[in-house]
Design a protein around this nucleic acid. Structure first.
Length: 848
RNA sequence: GCGGACGUGGCGGAAUGGUAGACGCUACAGACUUAAAAUCUGUUAUCUGAAAAGGUGUGCGGGUUCGAGUCCCGCCGUCCGCACCA
């Protein structure tokens, strides 16, 4: 075979990327009359290089976007940069570069990388959240939310590094210690800004019901995150006092099993008791050690401190319970105080055993009704209430209702709906973020920056030689006059959580006026995003915040859209084999080779352990740089690999043999095109060896399946179909009836996936215009009907024979044919037939 | 600790409760070639068997059903998220 039949991706890639750009092929037209389709992938953080996981994400979106264009839609497929964040500040500290310079240089590099992959982005709408043209509008939106009462200030805990005197992100706390200082981290309270996401808890929960095209698991995770529960809020009065402790419980049915009341370390009762008790002060300080993450707090050993106070049981004033301060009670949830029922809650049981408190069974585990509870495993299942006076004999739900009713009658408590969801703390004590547009005045308090003074720009002249927020020590930034009274005041130096930046970027993509965040009518022409694609790690926070932000904008009248993302797809990670030396150091896959059954280092032949297949990460040296593989194989083979084999929601393992296989397929497609052209140019007629192939029906079946598979993002299945169709075309060969049409169909089917090859082929076939603009092939339903089916014949559920029969054959005829089978008769072996199950066009099962 | 998922050949995976292993990768054999690469053809779950055929088989243990990879119950293992990473 001659050289020129090899596809040259380096020539084709640049040629067609240039053509698309010059012809503005993928620029979305706001004025279009076509049906609209907004396809969006989560925008990347500009960390420096495009990661192979990005390539997978954007390839999926790109295939859908290109397919939607070919099926007659006006497609909006934008790209931008989630450009604020901690890594830029880390780079500043480590390399002495400016976060802005570092970030903008990264954006340039990564943009060039993305362009090489031929993604059909509308680059005219590119945005970066770190530019005042973006964050200025965000500040305006923040102030609108502030005016609407959705922003407030309260105290909240942060990770505090006492050595560096700085706030740490959870990520910067390693095993309870500061990542740079190595000193044990403390929890410290700061006054911070919050968004009232809890006002929308019920709406956000209800809204999930309408998100039919979201994965169930994501909806379930969000539901659990919002964590709606019904319970009882009630007072446990201090003995001999009208004052008491406000307690929330979801299990009022277990009230007669109470053996203690516990409050959080920050609870006012704990604080008051500590005033004259140094040992309690010490205990509270101990509770403040360690980071703020839920996992850390909840896995810490349960500890308590007896305050010496007693409270009365609400249902029996003569029954007194001790009050503890406990490290596992959270001030943020409920009322910051609980009553402990050890028999039916594992945490309470651990605590009660440790401090030798009574453990009374109040829910029967079958016939276990004794009041003394044995063992160290709490019983939290359903059952009958026992040892509980007027509740005895009820089931759990009846008892819950009865206690709430009693509490309301007697005036010591009431039923309450509780959410686990907390308000969103948006203050960050960091430089590289959106400045919060507030000025603090001694006289007037917190005063919003007037809209005509926006954006509040981040100063660029900052230094990172000492830890902490450089805005705090900037000579002029924090100095401002109060907009209300004109007196000297202090500008807020905290910046906004970067999740705020990513909570409305999809809106700005749809409409980018310079004088306001967006134009309502323009946005509503595009939103909701028809398909949103990104990593499952965003299942809760980003997606919940974006839903909230959209609803909040709708609440203040800026938008009539409630849910931003009509369908969501969460894709899996890209993984790769890891390799380790005996000394524990990692080796990259190109530093090792196989030596028989073992792996050795190429450099010195030393033995290497093949480790687990893990998410690509620099530290484990199992990364693959997209640029390198595009250099080697071209964009199309890489794109094909991203789509093939693994289902998109699962992890994809990068492998050398896999990409080689994709490269071979790209060339296989090219050879078909080459054959097509050579056959068209000659007048020799070629007689195919095959006669039993039906190219027309395979083409239509493939069009049908591939279209449906792309719509469902099941690219691996679409690709399997395309492989089969390709084989059929090859077997048939030129000259076979319908061969040329079949090849043209094949090119259109692969056009969204391997667009450069498809354009190159399309033009070599002498077709007019871009294949990107060509219409998707039409399915003729008449061609999908098969006239023969294969029937499975089972005896007692085991396959014994298959029959090929006309489609739609009646049951009795199928049964007769099955019984006539020699193999079936042999297996029945004269036994009585008890039953015959016939599923038309499917199977016959003979039960003996 | 809480929440969510996943588990099928040597590997990635396919399979409206109805023929388990489509399609791809790898490996092996053959063709072409002086040779190699590329390409093409064939084989490739496992056990017994020369073959025909038969047994076993979807993490483990039960259950529902004429029939279970799929549904139900109980385990085991692995991965992800947990509010200041993005």
């Amino acid at each position: 075979m001659s050289e020129e039949t090899r596809f040259n991706p380096h020539v084709a890639d640049t040629r067609w990327q240039k053509a698309w750009e010059e012809q503005r092929t993928f620029v979305a037209d706001d004025a279009s009359e076509k049906p609209r389709c907004y396809v969006l992938e989560m925008f990347p953080y500009p960390s420096g290089r495009i990661h192979i996981g990005h390539v997978r994400n954007y390839t999926m979106g790109d295939v859908l976007a290109r397919y939607k264009r070919m099926t007659g839609h006006e497609v909006l497929h934008p790209m931008g940069w989630d450009a604020f964040g901690m890594p830029a500040e880390n780079a500043a500290m480590e390399k002495g570069v400016h976060p802005g310079g570092w970030t903008r240089a990264n954006i340039e590099n990564m943009k060039a990388q993305l362009k090489r992959l031929g993604f059909a982005f509308d680059w005219t709408r590119e945005l970066a959240t770190c530019e005042p043209e973006y964050y200025g509008h965000e500040q305006a939106l923040f102030l609108r939310l502030y005016e609407a009462g959705l922003v407030y200030r309260k105290e909240s805990e942060v990770n505090w590094d006492p050595a560096d005197m700085t706030v740490l992100a959870n990520e910067q706390v390693i095993d309870g210690k500061g990542w740079r200082s190595g000193v044990e981290v403390e929890r410290r309270k700061l006054s911070q800004w919050f968004l009232k996401i809890t006002d929308f808890a019920e709406e956000l929960l209800d809204g999930l019901g309408g998100l039919d095209a979201w994965p169930d698991k994501v909806k379930l995770m969000q539901e659990n995150w919002i964590g709606k529960s019904q319970g009882l809020r009630c007072i446990f009065k201090f003995v001999g006092s009208e004052d008491g402790i406000d307690v929330f419980t979801t299990r009022p049915d277990t009230m007669f099993g109470a053996s203690f009341v516990a409050v959080a370390a920050d609870h006012p009762v704990a604080q008051r008791c500590a005033e004259n008790a140094p040992s309690l002060q010490e205990f509270i300080a101990e509770c403040k050690k360690g980071g703020t993450t839920a996992a850390e707090i909840e896995t810490a050993e349960k500890q308590g401190f007896d305050t010496g106070l007693s409270v009365e049981h609400p249902l029996d004033a003569s029954w007194h319970l001790p009050v503890y301060v406990a490290n596992f009670v959270l001030m943020d949830y409920g009322t910051g105080a609980v009553f402990g029922c050890p028999a039916h809650d594992q945490r309470d049981l651990d605590f009660a055993r440790k401090y030798e408190l009574s453990v009374t069974r109040v829910v029967a585990d079958g016939d276990q009704t004794a009041s003394d509870f044995e063992g160290d495993e709490a019983y939290s299942d359903a059952g009958k209430i026992v040892n509980s006076h007027f509740l005895n004999g009820m089931n759990v739900d009846e008892a819950i209702a009865a206690v709430i009713a009693t509490a309301q009658n007697e005036g010591w408590g009431e039923g309450q709906t509780q959410y686990r969801l907390r308000d969103w703390g948006v203050s960050r004590q960091r430089y590289w973020g959106t400045p919060i547009p507030i000025i603090h005045c001694d006289e007037c308090g917190a005063v919003p920056v007037p809209e005509d003074q926006l954006p509040v720009k981040l100063p660029e002249d900052v230094s990172f030689d000492i830890p902490g927020n450089p805005l705090d020590r900037h000579p002029t930034f924090s100095k401002a006059d109060c907009p209300k009274c004109g007196q000297p005041a202090r500008r807020e130096t905290d910046t906004l959580d970067t999740f705020a930046d990513s909570s409305w970027y999809f809106i700005r993509f749809a409409s980018q006026p310079s004088d306001k965040p967006f134009d309502k009518a323009a946005v509503e022409k595009w939103l909701p995003v028809q398909q949103y694609i990104g990593g499952v790690e965003h299942a809760i926070l980003h997606l919940l915040y974006a839903r909230f932000w959209t609803r909040a904008l709708s609440y203040i009248g800026l938008l009539d859209v409630k849910e931003p993302f009509a369908s969501l797809f969460t894709q899996g990670m890209v993984t790769h084999q890891t390799f380790k030396h005996g000394d524990g150091s990692w080796l990259s896959p190109d530093q090792v080779k196989k030596d028989g059954a073992d792996w050795i280092a190429i450099e010195d032949g030393s033995p290497v352990t093949a480790g687990r297949i893990e998410k690509m990460s620099k530290s484990k040296k199992n990364v693959v740089d997209p640029d390198d593989i595009v250099d080697q194989y071209g964009a199309d083979a890489v794109r094909w690999f991203m789509l093939s084999d693994s289902p998109p929601e699962r992890d994809l393992e990068w492998s050398e043999s896999g990409i080689e296989g994709c490269w071979r397929f790209v060339n296989r497609l090219w050879r078909i095109v080459d054959t097509y052209n050579r056959y068209a140019a000659s007048d020799i007629s070629i007689q195919s060896q095959q006669t039993n192939l039906n190219l027309v029906s395979s083409a239509h079946l493939t069009i049908d399946f591939v279209g449906k598979d792309i719509e469902r993002l099941q690219f691996n299945k679409a690709i399997a179909r395309i492989y089969s169709f390709t084989s059929t075309i090859e077997k048939a060969g030129p000259g076979y009836p319908y061969w040329e049409e079949a090849v043209e169909t094949l090119l259109k089917l692969v056009a969204p996936m391997t667009p450069h090859l498809a354009e190159e082929a399309w033009s070599s076939l002498g077709k007019e215009g871009l294949i990107a603009n060509a219409p998707w092939p039409q399915v003729d339903p008449a061609m999908l009907v098969e006239d023969e089916v294969t029937i499975a014949v089972q005896v007692k559920g085991k396959l014994r024979d298959t029959l090929t029969v006309a489609k739609g054959l009646p049951k009795d005829e199928l049964e007769a044919l099955a019984l006539a089978s020699e193999k079936v008769q042999r297996n029945i072996d004269g036994a009585d037939i008890r039953k015959v199950i016939v599923v038309p066009d499917r199977l016959v099962n003979i039960v003996i």
